[in-house]
C-alpha cells in the first residue's frame, strides 16, 4: 500500500471512529425518553405522577373515624377538610397503619383557627358565603365571659349542634321567618 493510500485510510478510519464515539456518547448521554413527546425527558411526567401523596380526602378519614363523620357531615362545617385543622393523612397513616397521633387544637388555638374564616373585621368576606362575627361583640351579646373560646358553645365539627339541642330542650327553638 502506498503512503498516500495509507494516509487516506487513516483519515477515513479516524472519521469513522470519531463518528462512532459521537453516536455512542449521544445515545448514552441523552436520556432514553427524551423526545418522546417533545424536547424534554418524558419520564419526568411519570416521576411527577408518582410523587408521594400527603393529603388524603375527608372520606379517607371517615373510613375509621365514623363517629366524627356522623357529626361532621350533618353540620355546617361539612365542607371543611379534616386535614386542615388536624394535619395531613400521611403524618397519621403509612402503609395502612397508624404511625402517629395528629394534634388536636385546644383553647385559644381554636379561637384563632375559627377567626381565620369567621372574623367580620376582614370585610372581604361575602355574607352569602360565610357567617362572620366580631368576636368581642359576639361574646358580649351572648352574655358570656370575654375569655370564652369558640368551642365552649360551638361544637367545632357542627357549630350549631349544641345550640340547637339546647334550644330544643328549653323550648326556645326560633321559628324561622
Amino acid at each position: 500500500m502506498s503512503k498516500h493510500a495509507l494516509r487516506i485510510a487513516f483519515v477515513v478510519a479516524s472519521v469513522v471512529l470519531m463518528a462512532g464515539v459521537g453516536f455512542v456518547l449521544k445515545a448514552q448521554l441523552i436520556p432514553k425518553s427524551f423526545g418522546l413527546y417533545g424536547p424534554y425527558r418524558a419520564d419526568a411526567i411519570d416521576e411527577e405522577a408518582q410523587r408521594v401523596l400527603k393529603h388524603g380526602t375527608n372520606a379517607s378519614c371517615f373510613g375509621c373515624h365514623q363517629y366524627e363523620a356522623t357529626i361532621h357531615l350533618k353540620g355546617n362545617h361539612k365542607t371543611i377538610s379534616c386535614e386542615f385543622c388536624h394535619g395531613t393523612y400521611s403524618d397519621h397513616i403509612k402503609n395502612g397503619k397508624k404511625i402517629a397521633n395528629l394534634p388536636v387544637k385546644k383553647g385559644t388555638e381554636i379561637t384563632t383557627l375559627c377567626l381565620r374564616c369567621h372574623n367580620t373585621e376582614i370585610k372581604a368576606r361575602s355574607t352569602m358565603v360565610i357567617k362572620t362575627v366580631g368576636i368581642q361583640d359576639h361574646l358580649k351579646k351572648q352574655n358570656v365571659k370575654l375569655t370564652h373560646t369558640c368551642n365552649q358553645c360551638h361544637h367545632v365539627h357542627a357549630p350549631l349542634k349544641y345550640i340547637n339541642e339546647a334550644k330544643k330542650i328549653t323550648g326556645l327553638m326560633e321559628v324561622k321567618p
Binding site: 377538610s81 386542615f84 381565620r116 374564616c117 376582614i122 372581604a124 368576606r125 361575602s126 352569602m128 358565603v129 360565610i130
Partner: peptide, 9 residues
C-alpha cells in the same frame, strides 16, 4: 373570587 374568604387553607 366571590367565594374566597381568605382563610388560607
Amino acid at each position: 373570587i366571590t367565594r374566597c374568604i381568605g382563610c388560607g387553607s
